[in-house]
Design a protein around this nucleic acid. Structure first.
Lengths: 207, 207, 207, 207
DNA sequence: TATTAAACGAGACGGTACGTCCAGTCTTAGC
DNA sequence: GCTAAGACTGGACGTACCGTCTCGTTTAATA
């Protein structure tokens, strides 16, 4: 990214009495982003994040407790926007667009790569897993279900639908392919998932 | 575990001209299994695997290149048996049993914990990811589709079924819950997935 | 040795911005001295130096590049004092005392043992040999010739004496016995060397 | 050297019941010589000696106990010839030639380099030092004193001469320069030593 | 205006584990 | 019985990061 490759002419910040340096915070998050994109999760170290950000190691540790903590913050800062489903009033269309967006995010974007790294780390760190769910996954799940919730509100689909279960059946296969099998996830695949959703409730034709 | 806690009376092996020591190989794999169960993935080190196995560190490195390489071997040795679907001739029943088994394996078993750790590691190591797929996931996927393949052969379900896609829609949500949301996966959930499979093809009623 | 066996009450040093820890430096040098005296050159390892000094291995490597580098520093710190010739104004006496001192240092003292080890190492490491000469031997040679230089200045002996060559004929045999033949070097032997020196210039009787 | 870089067409020796393989013995000693000349003492390993000699490591250990043991044997095999003083009946001449030969051997020859390495090792291994003296140095010292002994026998010099002490005063400075100061030792220097010897006994002019 | 305390840079520190290297031992099969 | 081959134990090597700590500087709110 652009990330102001040359530090601004603004005189360097050296701390002050009330509160942290915003400059340092941004520099750390951007360095973390850049590094994980360039060298992958395992290739990033706290020491390099600090030196790339032009910041003392202690400053990183003052505000974040670990590499994954930094990466989670960096991820949160620019991830949500990619994953908010649109609302056109047309459930079928909204679902298809959203699933394609999700698949593309996971498969091809830089923050998607960070996301996979964080999910990976969560597999061997329960504490981190809980934090990641609390700070990102729960919200993301709320966003994912928005199209279905709105369709229920509009009366387009039955109110006694188990929204969470249906959602899992649609997004689950995408995550499965990305995290487990490593196959690419194209529009045919995501559209097929939407087809499956509608075919499970024949009484409510798509529009 | 069984893992013969006391070494057998057989005299110690010190190398010979015709290949590696089977005793050392088993000891390493068992030590790795035990350690990862006891202290989790991150708590295991090559040094401790070696010393627990009563083996020199160099002997571990002679045959495996990294901790994950050892764990993959250890996992392969006792994992496949847990995940082979039965064949009763009844597709509905076979699917339900298999998915419950899969969910239980992932959620509650020791090798399931190792599996999650390995999948986690695969998220930040492309080389390992490829190796893990080649040595385990591809075969597992063959096993997963056995019930459907057999039903096709028996003429129970249409021959033009996209078996891979249907499979992803059934197992995907399970992996999603285990790896991403961390929710428990009970029989209701897996049965619901089977229901969904059949409801997508009304012309072929179960039984 | 003195080596302040109990660490001073001063609180532990953990690094600061103004360079290295003097405490760590001293502890390493003392540990090296003690270990080489206790177990000989070959029995000393960097790891044990570090742990004996209560210091991290990396701290040793930060400031010294090898075991011999540490030992050279340790040797320099307490060696020079043993080898500075006295100045009584009496050449004959000064020479005899100095050669006895040199022989005793090489044969019986702890730093003498370190010296022999370092000279030994210099035989198979040219880089170290050059460093050892630059940091110790050249200066020692200056000290060795002091008695002769002073006698020349006093007019006691001819000004056209080849001081370096005469010196080699006196100290050379001592080093030869210590390093090569391993024989003991007693006062008779060193006195005989001084006799030889004077007998080579009969016109200048020893006072 | 020739050292049969390609193994000869002669069928390889694989052991027999009639004592050790002379072929293996020679190959090991030659490999050791070549390696120490090519890479220095520290760069030689038992493993490389064995593989360079086309011999199993165990075969080396069967006949020699350590690297220095091999090198000592290799050295002994071709060293003595360089260091035997001639006998022309002329003491002055014999001494000058022998000291020059000694200086040249130590300073410039390949076996001289091995010699220095072995003397170096002797500084930190008492056991080896004793062995080296027993197997080489004592004999060499006998050879060194031959010219003086013969001159005594011929009545050229006084019979009550302390031959050993005089010898040390001549060879000592050479070893001192080679082992300690690292200076070159030219003919002027060795001749000066001989001059010193004669000037210490004016009643016995050279020739 | 001077004081003061938080945040900062720099970087040395005690540690842990890494992955490599070599020494020296042992076993087996071939000649 | 000696050999080649090579797997084995054991242990030091030197490196890389970890997370902690100290030092002296910068800064802005307080006094």
């Amino acid at each position: 990214m652009g990330h102001e490759p040359a530090r601004p002419a603004v005189s360097r910040h050296h701390g002050n009495r009330h509160g942290r340096s915003e400059r340092a915070r941004q520099a750390v998050l951007e360095a973390a982003d850049d590094l994980v994109a360039a060298k992958g999760f395992a290739g990033v170290t706290m020491e390099e994040i600090a030196s790339s950000a032009g910041v003392a190691k202690q400053t990183v540790y003052r505000w974040w407790s670990s590499k994954t903590d930094v990466l989670m913050d960096a991820f949160l800062q620019d991830a949500a926007e990619h994953l908010t489903p649109a609302d056109t009033g047309d459930l079928d269309r909204d679902l298809r667009v959203h699933l394609r967006q999700l698949a593309d995010f996971l498969s091809h974007s830089d923050p998607g790569a960070v996301f996979k790294a964080l999910i990976g780390h969560a597999q061997h760190d329960q504490t981190f897993a809980a934090a990641f769910r609390a700070r990102f996954l729960d919200e993301q799940r709320q966003r994912d279900r928005l199209p279905l919730d709105r369709a229920v509100q509009r009366g387009q689909i039955s109110a006694d639908l188990d929204v969470a279960a249906e959602l899992d059946q649609m997004v689950g296969p995408i995550f499965y392919r990305v995290l487990v099998t490593g196959e690419s996830v194209d529009a045919d695949f995501t559209d097929h998932l939407v087809d499956g959703f509608f075919s499970r409730r024949p009484s409510t034709p798509p529009a």
